Amino acid sequence: MTPVFAHGSLRLYLLSLLAESPRHGYELIQALSDRFGGTYSPSAGTIYPRLAKLEEEGLVTKAAEGRKTVYAITDAGRAELAEREHELDAIEDEVTDSVRRLADEVRAGVNEAMRSLRADLASAARDASRGPRIDVRQEARDAGRDARQAANAAARDAEAALNEFRQQLRTDFRSQAARGDIPDGVVPQLKSELARVRASVLEALGRR
């Protein structure tokens, strides 16, 4: 932000405020804020060092009133103010220009903030109208992973079923062989049935 007061101008302006009436530091800050319509409010770090310098030069005095320190202009301060009255008129013009400039800066800042807000709202509205974004590639990867997991589970189940069938049939054949009673046509029938079952399964798998 552009400096509000030229070098040395704030010092003289503080004297003019104290010439109106004694004030404590906060009242001086408030008076300046009011003069600038709230667009500028000096900090305590700006005001108090200048008041201390004015006191050091004998242009103001300070006195404690309760917990507050009140500053008042001295005769020497009034004399300097009268001597530099033409400068004070120029400072008043500077203040008027500064108020106008600060108001323009504030207005520009507000306009820029409103433009940014409108852009953000428009972007949010577009995102809402499009709905949640879908990552097609991620969905494809997820679908492929799920399919592989299902196929692996089916393969395990098939292997378990085959192992159970083989174990049961082996037990049946060994028991029958122990009794010496396996008909001649059983083994060819077994091979034929196994070939038929395999062909049927391959057909279901699409691998004829």
Rank of each mutant, 00 (worst) to 15 (best):
P3C: 08
P3E: 06
G8P: 02
G8I: 04
L10E: 13
Y13S: 09
S16G: 03
L17N: 02
E20M: 04
P22E: 11
G25R: 08
E27L: 07
A31P: 01
L32H: 02
D34C: 07
R35P: 06
R35L: 05
F36D: 11
G37V: 01
G37S: 05
G38K: 05
S41W: 13
G45I: 15
T46H: 04
T46G: 06
I47V: 10
Y48E: 09
Y48P: 04
K53L: 15
L54E: 11
E55K: 10
E55Q: 08
E56F: 11
L59K: 10
V60R: 02
K62C: 13
A64G: 08
V70A: 02
V70H: 04
I73C: 00
G77M: 01
R78W: 01
R78F: 11
A79D: 11
A79M: 09
E80D: 08
L81N: 03
E83P: 02
R84F: 10
R84W: 03
H86D: 13
D89K: 10
A90L: 08
A90E: 11
A90R: 07
E92A: 12
E94K: 00
E94P: 00
V95F: 02
T96F: 08
D97S: 13
R100A: 11
R100V: 05
L102W: 07
L102T: 10
L102Y: 05
V106R: 12
G109D: 11
M114D: 15
R115K: 13
D120I: 01
L121E: 03
A122P: 01
A124Q: 06
R126M: 08
R133C: 00
R133T: 03
D135A: 05
D135W: 01
R137K: 05
Q138E: 12
R145N: 11
D146H: 14
A147I: 12
A151C: 03
N152V: 12
D157C: 03
N163V: 09
N163G: 12
R166K: 12
Q167I: 11
L169A: 07
Q176Y: 13
R179T: 12
G180V: 05
V186A: 15
P188V: 03
A195Y: 11
A195I: 03
R196H: 15
E203P: 14
L205K: 00
G206Y: 04
